[in-house]
Design a protein around this nucleic acid. Structure first.
Lengths: 329, 329
DNA sequence: AGGCAGGATTGGATCGTTCAAGTTTCTGGA
DNA sequence: TCCAGAAACTTGAACGATCCAATCCTGCCT
């Protein structure tokens, strides 16, 4: 069993002092080329890796980012968080950070966990997925100057913090325009109850696209909690009342329900979902696709901007979704 | 901004030495009750939290567990990893550990990542999800005496290491017996190509249950890669050739495909899937349910057993799945 | 009352790194 | 040739916890 390789081992091997090795790692430019090469060779030869705990003690930086993982609460959309976390891990890694998971059952507990993670592990930053009106979490973090980014824009104008989001309205608008271009006029919308920022945003995109095309959206939309059964129920309702020729949905779950409701209806009703989940791909549902990997990458960009340098407030990022075309529209 | 609270702050506040505070934290039984109380009060009053980096430097233990997160490769089954990770995070937390994520695109890179994580962060243990024949990862870890657990049993008898798994054969057997009890005799099976440990296991459960009931399984099974389209294709094939009255599938994706294939067939063909994914719940598919939270908890149990104490080799855990009954069977 | 055993408490050393301040070496211009 | 100033490198101290060995109590027994 080889003894532990520390910075001192490397220093001895390269015939320089500890500090010079440290400089090669942290401020390479102040070390002479020749010396730097010698140190780097020693590092490689010995397989040296800087001990993060010791580094952290001195610098107060853990190079750790926290993200929450939830039980899959929303049946179909569960994979969204999954894909986002994967992207986050990958990009953070490239930037020299690691992702630490935590869970919490409610906001109070989540905030208590923040304190624990910050105190015990000295986390560098948090990534919050999803935001809501009057979010106590962002307030708590901002009050303590803890760096964080949210995937999801702040719905209350007051608190400004770095965020990344996907333009849901643009997504539903794009979906709606595609249907308009295909000749549809009675294009319905199935979404979530008024008051959820995300839901209102997606509905607005549909509404505005219709209006821009000179179609009156009045009476063409329905609201419900998310779920396949709910989507099916509302689609039946729409068929019975306004008989749309196409429908845009706020989620793939709702769209899947709608698909079940229109089975056998002739002429076929076009359906477009939201999130481009694996299920949508599997059943051939056209769906608005969020660039989750890109979103995760931009979150990391914003964080490293705050952590590693520029003190200027980072610019929020609003990404454009695309339409994954399949055979339902 | 309050100054940092260290063990010295607590000691001063409680009028004891640093060591006594440390003892209260690590070996409470050797401190007099009265003193202990005073120290604990001070800890609470000051909101003290032991600095993990400093502790780690001295003890060499990071209280960090690594787990891999994959991009959702398998459409529907993606949420399995999701749910497992959530359970892992929750249980690890309760045991005083945190979960660190990493990604890797292939085995070599994954092993390189092990080295990095161990060298830099001094990870305490790894949790590997999924195992395969001749897995180089388990070998690497075992060679270096790195503690790890796999969720998925080792398919090669040779290398013994702590593992937790769900008895897939028992799951498909249970599903098969339920269909037998309902009067079915021609019960087909749609699964994965021979050679994958998991797939073979699930098929064996179906086969043995049929044989035990005196039914010959010959010709009643089909194999393919996972996917809805594949499931649909094979179900059509089965209908055309052996005309089963029920089918057990190795995954919910395959089952969903089968469901599409039997639409309109009369009398209705019963279908049972595997994994009890949210999609199964949504479409009313009866499915074999893996106790993922329990599996994660047992993984943590095994690890803490190795890390915090008993040197005896921990006993592998084989959990029993249950049947989530819905209206397809 | 004295001595002793044993538990409770104390100060000092240590983990591996970076920071701050010091010392040596190099470079170029008069 | 000499020296100022910059560049390159070295040394000592510190981060906050635990471990170790020495010391201080305390109660108990003779």
């Amino acid at each position: 069993m080889a003894e532990k390789v520390t910075i001192a081992t490397v220093a001895r091997h390269a015939r320089v002092s500890r500090q010079t090795v440290s400089n090669v790692l942290n401020s390479p430019h102040i070390v002479r080329q020749e010396t730097r090469q010698r140190v780097e060779d020693a590092i490689n030869a010995l397989g040296y890796r800087a001990n993060q705990a010791a580094r952290q003690m001195r610098t107060g930086r853990s190079r750790l980012i926290a993200a929450r993982i939830d039980p899959t609460r929303d049946g179909i959309n569960g994979s969204v968080l999954d894909r986002f976390l994967h992207g986050l891990t990958e990009t953070a890694d490239a930037a020299g950070y690691r992702v630490l998971l935590y869970t919490a059952t409610d906001d109070d507990r989540e905030i208590a966990t923040y304190g624990d993670l910050l105190g015990t592990y000295e986390l560098d930053a948090f990534v919050l997925v999803g935001t809501k009106h009057g979010d106590p979490r962002t307030e708590w973090l901002a009050d303590r100057d803890v760096p964080f980014v949210t995937f999801g824009r702040p719905w209350d104008a007051l608190d400004a913090h770095p965020w990344v989001d996907v333009d849901g309205a643009a997504g539903t608008a794009q979906a709606t325009r595609r249907l308009l271009d295909a000749g549809h006029r009675r294009i319905a919308f199935i979404g979530w109850p008024v008051g959820s920022g995300v839901g209102d945003d997606r509905r607005a995109g549909w509404r505005d696209a219709l209006r821009a095309a000179g179609v009156d959206p009045t009476g063409l939309h329905r609201e419900t909690e998310d779920g396949i059964a709910e989507g099916e129920r509302l689609m039946h309702d729409l068929l019975d009342t306004v008989a749309p020729s196409a429908v845009v949905c706020a989620s793939d779950s709702l769209a899947l329900g709608a698909l079940q409701a229109i089975r056998g209806v002739d002429p076929p009703v076009s359906v477009i979902g939201f999130d481009d989940t694996p299920v949508a791909a599997a059943v051939g549902l056209t769906s608005v696709s969020q660039p989750l990997g890109e979103a995760a990458a931009r979150c990391v960009d914003l964080l490293t901007g705050v952590l590693d340098g520029d003190h200027e407030t980072p610019t929020p990022v609003l990404l454009q979704p695309s339409l994954a075309l399949r055979h339902t529209a």
